[in-house]
Design a protein around this nucleic acid. Structure first.
Lengths: 122, 122
DNA sequence: TCACATAGGGATAAATTTATCCCTTATTGC
DNA sequence: GCAATAAGGGATAAATTTATCCCTATGTGA
């Protein structure tokens, strides 16, 4: 695992939540797990742009942060199921509000985001 | 400005909000601006761990994404004021909920975050 | 027997984000 | 004249995060 050289700022609640949600795929993972996609392979299918590798890494972080729990069934072929912990579930209303905000403002957001990116590319 | 080689995913509302909030200091900037710290030097004092440089860069992104607006007064020494746009203000309830969640769970979060980090360091 | 599905990890490269350092402008106070 | 203040930008290094590639294990079905 990467060993940090610069410690994160943990001064206030926003810092703390930022620390556990920071990660390209974490919010989506929480969301899809909450929707019932519990197995790694289902999550991969839901998030095809991410590689298995990163999803595993980010799932492990979510687990270490106490947001999801993992059950490994001792069968072959292997079977694993993730689910939100009680603690992780308390995040759902917030993620839901975030998603709604994004959906509500989709047109505008898509426009300004792409404007910053397509400066000569494509 | 850095030219992206990998385009971001913009499949759903969560992706969109993630894109505009992603940045080490952005949430804090929005928060402090909302609290009335409008001038760059005030923001720097509020966020001493960030350098002027990064704050400027992230403020510019927030501006380009339509969340904050910037007024430059033509005086010397220079005077600049940032404020939330109407659009930016719609984010405040969400940031507030996020901050509260972090505050409520401060002890637990601090513990699990530090556990992941202090694996041999310090 | 060969391909496939399932889950996961190591090593390393590439992408992206932050940090550092230094430079500019013009006025006020000493 | 010299230091401090206000705001900000360029160049470059360092830190951090993601992506790529390859390898392991074991049963099931064709």
């Amino acid at each position: 695992m990467y060993e940090r050289k610069i410690l994160p700022n943990l001064n206030c609640g926003l810092d703390l939540i930022g620390e556990v949600l920071y990660g390209k795929w974490k919010i989506r993972l929480l969301w899809f797990i909450n929707e019932g996609n519990q197995r790694p392979s289902e999550l991969q299918r839901k998030i095809p742009d991410a590689t298995r590798r990163v999803l595993n890494i980010q799932l492990k972080e979510l687990e270490e942060h106490g947001l999801v729990s993992k059950i490994i069934y001792p069968v072959v072929p292997p079977k694993v199921e993730y689910s939100l912990t009680e603690f992780g579930q308390t995040l759902i209303p917030i993620l839901s509000a975030m998603g709604q905000w994004g959906d509500t403002n989709e047109a505008h957001l898509r426009s300004v985001i792409l404007k910053r990116i397509d400066v000569g590319s494509q």
